[in-house]
Design a protein around this nucleic acid. Structure first.
Lengths: 200, 200, 200, 200
DNA sequence: AATGAATGAGAGTTCATTCAT
DNA sequence: GATGAATGAACTCTCATTCAT
């Protein structure tokens, strides 16, 4: 009874323990021993749920990347103007990175630890995700709403700035998540220079 | 002849090989065997120059962090207005991150791999460095030149955005380094929203 | 069948192999490779049973020191006069050193190889063991049965003389163990000088 | 000037440093690095004086074993009766072991660390030395002055008891060296049992 | 569903030793 | 007389992984 969802549960527990440890120490800095200890299992038991350490990492990355897209795409589509679309995208992106801090931390920084096909798979997913923003930016450029020289630079700047949230955000901080999202959106849209915010 | 500066040279070669490998695979993903192979030495020879792998990482971080500060502080001091000071700082920061890509990559992402006192030492240096920008931003806020809600958010956004350069910049790319610096400066000061650039 | 008690057995086999090698070559002169080879295991398998080489040595010393005390204390307590008590003690001490030659050899000569707390622990056990004899000797002195100047000298002389058995005793020698114990007892009690043995 | 005896001196310093370290940690527990550091030299410099670590150990053993014999043989020869001969031998043996504590400690306990011919050489020297005592004991037995069952047991007991001095003797102890020698001589000749000392 | 026992490769580190200078 | 630079083998220990139970 208590164990009806045993498998599912345990798999999830392993997943989370792995995420926590890899976020703190990196993939190579995390041992399956650590993971096993964190869930009070024997190391060999992990292999019942995940065929290898690589697959465990891959599972984290797959789920996180897909969830990220699923969280960000709808708001962008639902919004009206390019400006609103970009704002909605940034907001969703930031919120996700703060909400699922550890997973995005791992996903953003451990791609290099992926081997072979796994790396290609995840890289493709991430590129496709980046296109979401690139498209909005380029549309804005054509409409004359946005202004930048190089869409590559603009997109990368945007994504790394927002992804940074996962690095420095602390849930116990004094600034609410929603406010942080607002600030980053404003920052990217209008810069730090003082001026009557055009919209927000 | 070729070996007259044996020691100095070799130490430097090891340093660079380690930087390259750690930038690509991370600290834990890099073995001293790899480093040794890269410089055509026996693994044990590395210990003639560095007492441990940790100390090797520490050497990289110390040098890079100090050089970064030495590269960024003067331009900020030399500039006139807050706006110019911030611009000069961003520019120097970005140029350094592009110029010393591998070292900053390691330094930015492997602090977690540092142990004990080493971690505290480097963390202190990095915090002090961040203050350089925080001060400029806060001065600008008081002068009414800048506008933001939370200096912490603003500083972090700035630094992660710029540090991102080390992640995606490729020296062979089609956009020149100086142009990238300009774009990021503009982006952070005035945002993406199209508008008659106030200065640049 | 042969492997039903796998774990217990293997641990014991490792223990014995380690004892044999360390008795012959000393702690630092013995490698875990040697130990592993002696029990036909991979070196890494040793770590399933003992967390480190130090801990392996410690296990030997703990067991041997405790068993030694357990073997010597009862006979001393059971005997009547001081003279008999000392004789019983020497006898048990000698028999144990001959019986468990390799273990006592290691235990007597590798205390210096112990580190930190382990050393203190074993040293305390050994000191407590030495007190067993010191007490008998001092009681004999007070009763006027024994005569010596310095109980420290007398105790040390006794213990090193008897422990020496582990060094030179060979089970295949022509003198039986019991006779050796008798001789040493007589030697310590009455010396080499010819005389009608007072008791034995 | 200050360095006129440079070579001799340095060799002697290395010898002593090695003795001190090996007495404390054993041959295998002592590294040439330790030795070099103790005499403020580079490790490679040691090779100017000793061709290898083995030879260094051998040098210690050779010198000590020869000096021991040279210290013990004359007193035995000079003495009159067997009893006096044995007493003189024990006395000289004990004094030497206390006086040259560290060297005898190494010599007595590191024979197993010797390899090949070196081991045979030293073993032969030690056996010859042991004969000195065995002969006295056997003569005493024939003369009816001594009484023991097995000369092997008697000799070994004597030598290990006396050699033990090097283990527990502390120059700062409260008992003078000469008194210790007296006590051990008395102990071996007449035992602990209280009795009017026949001679001493 | 989970474990205990074992593996084999490879990690960082230390060692005695060499040799040109 | 002594060193600095390098070596290569060996060390202890840890890793991810396997598999019978």
């Amino acid at each position: 009874m208590a164990n009806r969802h045993g498998a599912r549960n345990t798999e999830e527990l392993i997943y989370r323990a792995a995420v926590g440890l890899m976020a703190a120490r990196g993939y190579h800095g995390t041992t399956l021993r650590d993971v096993a200890r964190a869930v009070s299992l024997q190391m060999s038991s992990i292999y019942y749920y995940f065929p290898s350490k690589q697959e465990l990492l891959l599972a984290v990355m797959r789920r996180t990347t897909r969830d990220l897209r699923a969280a960000v795409e709808p708001p962008i589509s639902a919004a009206g103007s390019v400006r609103e679309r970009l704002g909605a995208g940034i907001r969703a992106h930031v919120l996700f990175h703060a909400d699922r801090r550890l997973e995005t931390l791992v996903t953003d920084s451990e791609i290099r630890a992926l081997e072979g096909e796994g790396r290609e798979e995840i890289t493709a997913l991430r590129d496709a995700y980046g296109d979401l923003f690139r498209e909005v930016l380029e549309t804005g450029l054509q409409e004359g709403v946005f202004s930048f020289e190089d869409s590559h630079v603009a997109t990368n700047a945007l994504m790394t700035m927002c992804a940074g949230v996962a690095v420095w955000y602390r849930p116990d901080g004094h600034t609410s998540l929603s406010r942080i999202a607002d600030q980053l959106t404003h920052l990217y849209l209008d810069g730090v220079t003082a001026s009557p915010p055009r919209q927000a």
